[in-house]
């Protein structure tokens, strides 16, 4: 193994993670959660239209490959006159994707809160939206942390697909160094290791968040 190359490429790879992978994942996840919340609320609303739109959206996202979604946005849309740069394309594709998966998580979490909590919220005079925000979502949050953490961890790994639409994130840096040095095994294992470390850190963070949200639950 070429340790010199390992150490000399670690810097560029980490830079790719810090300037590419991580911000891409964070931005997409934040936007994705907003979309998911909106879609989840549509899915539990009494409006048939909102419900139907939400259902079709979730079905489309979950029923098509992420890579295809990415390609449609970056390589497909220019054909109809919509040209989007690599970074925004990636963020749009990933956040729409997260939105579809997380919407179902949030919807299930909302439905898992007992009906009596809605009634108690209404009893003290809250509107539906107030009850949702103040009473239901905080309780749903606790239930959705484990599945949403999984969604986020998947997303961090999936950002490597953005290399295929020319976003300079960590894996694209690894590909470039590998092509130049012809040390494919070394570079790809090095990239794998960094993904792994990031995901381990995220799992630890997940445990902490769960603990914090557990403070009002019997043990």
């Amino acid at each position: 193994m070429d340790f010199d190359l390992f150490w000399s490429s670690l810097g560029p790879l980490l830079l790719g993670a810090v300037k590419g992978t991580i911000p891409l994942a964070l931005a997409s996840f934040a936007l994705g959660l907003l979309i998911a919340l909106l879609v989840a609320v549509m899915r539990i609303s009494t409006s048939k239209l909102a419900n139907g739109v939400g259902r079709v959206y979730v079905s489309l996202i979950r029923g098509t490959p992420l890579l295809v979604q990415l390609f449609v946005i970056f390589y497909g849309l220019p054909a109809v006159g919509v040209k989007i740069d690599p970074w925004p394309s990636a963020i749009i594709a990933f956040s729409l994707n997260v939105g579809g998966y997380a919407a179902e998580v949030i919807r299930a979490a909302i439905l898992s809160v007992p009906q009596g909590q809605w009634e108690a919220g209404h009893m003290i005079g809250m509107s539906r939206n107030q009850t949702l925000l103040r009473i239901i979502l905080p309780q749903a949050a606790r239930v959705s942390v484990p599945p949403l953490s999984n969604t986020f961890i998947s997303l961090v790994k999936d950002t490597s697909l953005a290399s295929l639409i020319l976003v300079t994130e960590m894996f694209r840096v690894a590909q470039q160094v590998a092509a130049f040095s012809q040390e494919f095994m070394l570079l790809y294992l090095e990239a794998a290791m960094i993904y792994w470390v990031i995901c381990l850190a995220l799992s630890t963070a997940q445990t902490r968040v769960e603990k914090r949200l557990d403070r009002y639950v019997a043990h």
Binding site: P114, G116, Q117, E119, A120, M123, I135, P138, Q139, R142, Y216, V217
Partner: peptide
């Protein structure tokens, strides 16, 4: 309420 329905959080 019969089952109190306090806000657990």
């Amino acid at each position: 309420f019969q089952h109190y329905n306090l806000f657990p959080h």
